[in-house]
Structures are given as C-alpha cells and as structure tokens.
C-alpha cells in the first residue's frame, strides 16, 4: 500500500512526461538524469557545517517559547567549531549588520570564546575594516560541527551533529496535529 502511494506524486508526473509534451520542465527532467563528475566541492561538502550567523535567524522550536525573550539567542553548549576560509566582502558584512541582533550576537560570541565583538553595535562612523574582518570571521568563517543548542526559556536541548541541528520535537512538545491521529 505504501509503495503504491509513494508512486503517487511521481506517477502523475511520469504520465505527463510520457505525453510527449516538450516543455522546459520536461527538458529539465531529462537533463537531471545525466551526471557530471564530482569535484573538490564534494570534499568541501563533507566538511561543511553550520555557520554561526545561522543563530541570528533561529529560536526555540517549541511554540510556547516564541513569546519569551529568553528563547533567543539559543545557547551553544559543548561545541566543536571549525574555521573555513570564506571570501571577505566588506560591503556584504556592512549591509548584513542591520539584520543582526547585537545583544544576541554578543552572547553567542562569548559562548564561542570570541572576545572581540564590541559592546555596542558599530555604526557607519565606528565601523572599520578590522572590525568587519572580525565579524566576517565569526559570522561566516566559523562553523559549528558538533554540540548543542539550548533554549534559555524551556531548557530544551537541540543536538548538532555533522553541522546539522536537529529541531524535531518529542510528541509532548510538538505542535503537529498529525501526531494525535
């Protein structure tokens, strides 16, 4: 039964493919069957992990925590980090700053042992290249490989393995209606 359903989403598409209609999408589907050689980037992928800036865009997955200020930023614990060289584009970092929650970043920087983040968010007058380089290094070049992210409100721990954080929730914390069926 389940296999038959598996074919459901794809079978309808196969029907269309065999109808012989030459569309861009058909071309796309044929093309994606061809392969190109793997290159160094695949080695890079193996090593690739979660950039620190990710922390600026996430919070606790538990719905009840969203309203609480202490659910952001999530706290890094027992982390293993790696540095990966990334092309430095000063204007990019400068334009990124308005999106950064500075208080949160300060907390993260301290947890990761990054001493150089200033207390107050730099503005265009106080920003200089060394500061932009420091931020670049922390936000984009520092990668979290292993560890935990902990919510400051509910204490829930999210594990990070091979740079992939796991935000799936146990039944009693989840919000999915499907879990009740």
């Amino acid at each position: 039964m389940s296999l038959q359903k598996v074919l459901g989403k794809t079978m309808q598409l196969d029907d269309r493919k065999s109808s012989g209609e030459k569309t861009d999408r058909l071309r796309r589907s044929i093309d994606s069957a061809t392969t190109i050689p793997n290159r160094e980037v695949d080695d890079l992928c193996e090593a690739f992990v979660m950039r620190v800036i990710t922390i600026n865009f996430i919070t606790c997955a538990v719905k009840a925590c969203k309203a609480s200020a202490s659910s952001f930023p999530l706290h890094f614990q027992d982390v293993e980090v790696e540095q990966q060289e990334v092309h430095f584009e000063p204007a990019f970092i400068q334009n990124l700053l308005p999106r950064i929650d500075w208080t949160g970043l300060r907390t993260t920087a301290i947890e990761l042992g990054f001493p150089t983040v200033p207390d107050i968010k730099p503005n265009n007058d106080t920003l200089d290249e060394p500061m932009l380089r420091d931020l670049h290094r922390l936000l984009l070049e520092t990668q979290v490989v292993e560890g935990k992210l902990v919510c400051g409100n509910c204490g829930h721990e999210y594990s990070i393995k091979d740079g992939i954080a796991n935000f799936l929730l146990p039944d009693h914390l989840g919000s999915s209606p499907s879990l009740e069926t």
């Binding site: 992990v49 979660m50 950039r51 800036i53 990710t54 865009f57 996430i58 919070t59 606790c60 997955a61 999210y158 740079g163 992939i164 954080a165 796991n166 935000f167 799936l168 929730l169 989840g174 919000s175 999915s176």
Partner: peptide, 12 residues
Amino acid sequence: LASMTTDLCAPL
C-alpha cells in the same frame, strides 16, 4: 548557512 532537521519553519 545551514541545513536543519525540523518540521517546516518551526525554529525560524
């Protein structure tokens, strides 16, 4: 930035 194991947008 990252790939994350999660239901939809739950931790965003």
